[in-house]
Amino acid sequence: MMNATIAKLAAQALLGRRRFILLLAFPVLLIGLVALVAALTDGDAAFQILPGLGYPLVLPLVAILAASSVLGPEVDDGSIVYLLSKPVSRHGIATSKWVVALGATLVAGALPILVAALVTGDTTRAFALFVGAAVAGTTYSALFLAVSAVTRHAVIASLMFVLIWEGLLGNLFSGVAWLSVGQWGLRIGHEISSELPDPANLPWAIAASVVVTVAGVFFAGDRLRSFTLRGED
């Protein structure tokens, strides 16, 4: 399924130039802030930044940035035809691009959460949050890849999902947790450390994460299969 050439090109697009700096800014900001607060305060204030800011905001933002930059610009300006006019499986292209986005999300999103959580002590809790972040990062990157394959406004659409649906409405209505990628991850992390919240039931969280991931990557590939070249608009 994987195509090494596509993955290499996607990685080059992701790491090339300024976007890499933007991607790197998130973990630096997060770890720096948590370390600073941990050094200056006692109690649990430093850790609270992670479930309050790192997990619900930085992680999905990294996933959005990664998923949209491996696919978004090429679909946006139509230059993806250079990749598509080859005897290469479309699902292979989607999978390769997703793997690259996933790698970036884990390295720049989930790993910093682990590092920052370790800074605040309590290794079990840190690993629990990391597992949650890794699961959610996997699902997010597949979901946002699918969104990038559909609309040119992928970034804004994904942001609205994260900020308004999962964030704003998720805080108001607890039922949103059943349809929230971040909450599924937390529920899975809860199995490791009970300090994490317990928003939905476990089988649902696992099944939903798997289904959204697989469906997201498959759907992105399917959209590429029907990619239509249009004139300038």
């Binding site: 090109l9 080059q12 300006d77 139509g78 230059s79 035809v81 006019s85």
Partner: peptide, 15 residues
């Protein structure tokens, strides 16, 4: 069997 030269510009400027 097909080679396609689209009108689109290349956006692979980093290669």
């Amino acid at each position: 069997q097909v080679g396609l030269v689209p009108e689109r510009e290349l956006s692979f400027g980093y290669l």
